[in-house]
Amino acid sequence: MKTLTHLERLEAESIHIIREVVAEAERPVMLYSVGKDSAVMLHLARKAFYPSPPPFPLLHVDTTWKFRAMYELRDKMAELSGMDLLVYQNPEAQEKGINPFDHGSLHTDMWKTEGLKQALDKYGFDAAFGGARRDEEKSRAKERIFSFRTSSHGWDPKNQRPELWNLYNAKKARGESIRVFPISNWTELDVWQYIHLNDIPIVPLYFAEKRPTVERDGMLLMVDDERFPLKPGEEPVMRSIRFRTLGCYPLTGAVESEAKTLPEVIQETLLTTTSERQGRAIDKDAGGAGMEVKKQQGYF
């Protein structure tokens, strides 16, 4: 009798979770950030419902500051999967011209945290898939697969439901919603290997290439478009770089690398001794409890 590999077990578990949500929620949606975790999650959703397309839309909570290559892949994948793509941009942030250069953490708060709440309320989604993993960050190690949010999108770490076996309780009162993390039990290595084995399209920025960069506050930033305000004396330098995580380009640090293929990227990932979230500015807010505070405020 065949014994399943760890990736086969993880895949089956994730598909099971995605189907449970579709069976029990009224209006599910998949939050699609165009990163590698989203790529895996979307692929799993396509597998879960084949030959039907996944019976829910993709939602991109856009900040208008993503890398151009991300927008390209986003549109391509929506078409390929046969799913509706909803793009939501917080009109208030739009109007006020909130941007990562002038507004610091307000940029994330308004575009992402507020934007997500507004989008979920606007469409009345009661279940939203997200690509978070338990190995990413300390407070996530205890996050449930089904995470309940109050009608104001708050998260109460003391009031989460126990999850036994593979039985998920999706019952909720009107106005409440669930965030569901189907790839909770995957590690960064699992994600990469799965992308490799299944040939899943990902944003080319994950692979090394010569790109225009500036170094700022110890981070290597890519000058992705003309909106990047150069400080006096700053001159974009072509460096061979790639990204370990993708977000808003002015907030996402690159690493210098020569890894041009997936096995090379995986090799570099495994040999490196710096965890992947370090490239992001967000975790450093509010000391060690950064992500947890953000979650209580409603950040995904």
Partner: peptide
Amino acid sequence: YLEQHEHKTM
């Protein structure tokens, strides 16, 4: 290495 990791059980 990837070949080995691919065939790991859990």
